[in-house]
Nucleic acid binder design. Structure first.
Lengths: 211, 211
DNA sequence: TATCGATTCGCATGAATATGTGATACAATG
DNA sequence: CATTGTATCACATATTCATGCGAATCGATA
C-alpha cells in the first residue's frame, strides 16, 4: 500500500483529499500538514511517504523551496505539485527543483488518485495545459537562439557525430568504412564551414546546440 | 470541424486511423500519406490541416525533419508525433522541432481522438511515460541525477573551462599565466580523475553536464 | 614535524591532429 | 556539355596532444 503525504494550507482541501485517499484501498495517508516545516518535523520521526502532494503558496517556506529540501533528504519520495498557479515560472521551478508531477487545483479527487498511480507506475502526471507550457519551453529558446545553417552535408554531420562521441580520426574512418584521409578531408571542410580549427571547437559547438 | 492529416508509412495503421477519424463528427481526415514529401506536395494545393499525426521512421525524410519544414511553412498546423520510439533523443528532437504532442503507437483510437481534442483545446497530449522523460530533462542538469563528484580541484575546473572554450594548451597557459607544461600536468590529472584520455571526451562530458 | 594534496615547472617521445596540395568519380544543375 | 558540389583517397609537414618520469614550493593536517 502506497503512503501519501499532503502539504496544503487550506484545511478544507487538505482534509478532503486526506479522507478521500484514506478511503482508497491502495493508499494510506497518515500525514497532512499545512507547511513544509511541519512536514520536515514529521519526516524526522517517521518513514518518508512514497508520494507527497504539495501546494506552492504556503505559510513559511514555499513549496518550491520545500521540494529541494525534501528531495535532498528523501530522494525516493516523489512529489506532485497541486496548485492554482499555472504560470511557466512556477512550473519550471518546480520541475527543476525535483517535482515529478504538476496538477492544477481543479483536478478532481479521482483524477488525483489516478495521478498518484501514474506516478508510482513511473509516469509523470501532468494536465495537458501544463504539458503544453512545458513543451513550449523547448520551442522558444531554439528557433531563435540556434539553428544557424552552416550548409553542412549529411556526411559532414556523420563525421561531427563521430567527433562528439570522442572518436579519433582512425575510429571515425572505421565506423563509416572510409579512409582516414577522407575523414581528414571532411573535417577540413567542416572547419571551413564552421570557421573553427580544432576538434574541440566542433564538439563544443555541437553540444551547445549551435549545429 | 477540424481537419486532420496523417503521415504514416504503415498502410494498415494509416487507413485504420483515417477511417476512424472520418467516422467522427468532429473530424475530417482528407489526407493520409506515407511520407513527408507527399504531404508537402498535398499542402501545395490544399489548405493545411489543423492537426497532423506524424510518424518518425518514414521512407525518405524523417518525421522529425518534416516537422521543421511543415511548421515553417504552415505554422498554424499542430503536429502530434505518433511513433514507437520512446527514447529521449527522439522525443526532445521532435519537441524542439515544433511538435506539440507525442504519443506512442499503442495509443488506442479513442485516446488519439481525445488527444487531438486536447490539442485543439490548447493542451499538449502526451502519455505519462513521455511526460516523465520530458520532466527528467529538467532534472538532470541540476542536482539529483548528475553531478558526480570526481574530486576535481578548482584549478582543474579552470583548465576544463579552457578546454570547453576550445583553447589549445598554449592558450590555456596564456589565460592563466602558467607554463604549458603545467597545463599538461593538470590535464593529465583530470584525465585520471575522469577516466578519459582525450580533450574531446572532457569537453563532451562537461557540456553534457556530467562534471 | 612529517606527510599529503594542490600547484607549479621541465624534458622527452610517439601518437594524433591541422593544413596544404593535389586527384578521381558521380550526380545534379544550368 | 560544362560547372558545381559531394564524397572519396593520397602524400607531406608542422603543430598539438597524450603520457611517462621527475621535481620544487606551499599550505593544511595528522
Amino acid at each position: 500500500m502506497a503512503v501519501v503525504g499532503i502539504v496544503e494550507d487550506n484545511k478544507k482541501i487538505r482534509d478532503l483529499i486526506q479522507r478521500y485517499l484514506d478511503m482508497q484501498d491502495e493508499f494510506e495517508c497518515p500525514v497532512a500538514v499545512d507547511s513544509v516545516e511541519e512536514m520536515l518535523e514529521y519526516l524526522e520521526e517517521h518513514n518518508p511517504p512514497d508520494v507527497l502532494l504539495m501546494d506552492i503558496q504556503l505559510p513559511g517556506m514555499s513549496g518550491i523551496k520545500g521540494i529541494g529540501i525534501i528531495k535532498q533528504k528523501y530522494p525516493e519520495t516523489e512529489i506532485i505539485m497541486l496548485t492554482v498557479y499555472h504560470d511557466s515560472h512556477k512550473i519550471f521551478d518546480s520541475l527543476v527543483a525535483g517535482a515529478s508531477g504538476y496538477l492544477l487545483k481543479h483536478t478532481s479527487l479521482p483524477e488525483i488518485k489516478e495521478s498518484i498511480q501514474t506516478l508510482l507506475d513511473g509516469g509523470s502526471p501532468m494536465s495537458p495545459q501544463i504539458a503544453r507550457k512545458v513543451i513550449n519551453y523547448f520551442k522558444k529558446p531554439n528557433k531563435q537562439v540556434s539553428e544557424e545553417d552552416y550548409g553542412l552535408t549529411p556526411r559532414e554531420h556523420d563525421i561531427i557525430n563521430g567527433l562528439v562521441d570522442g572518436l579519433s580520426y582512425k575510429l571515425i574512418a572505421d565506423r563509416y568504412d572510409i579512409s582516414i584521409d577522407t575523414v581528414r578531408a571532411h573535417i577540413r571542410n567542416i572547419y571551413k564551414k564552421l570557421h573553427v580549427n580544432s576538434k574541440a571547437e566542433v564538439i563544443a559547438k555541437s553540444l551547445r546546440g549551435e549545429i
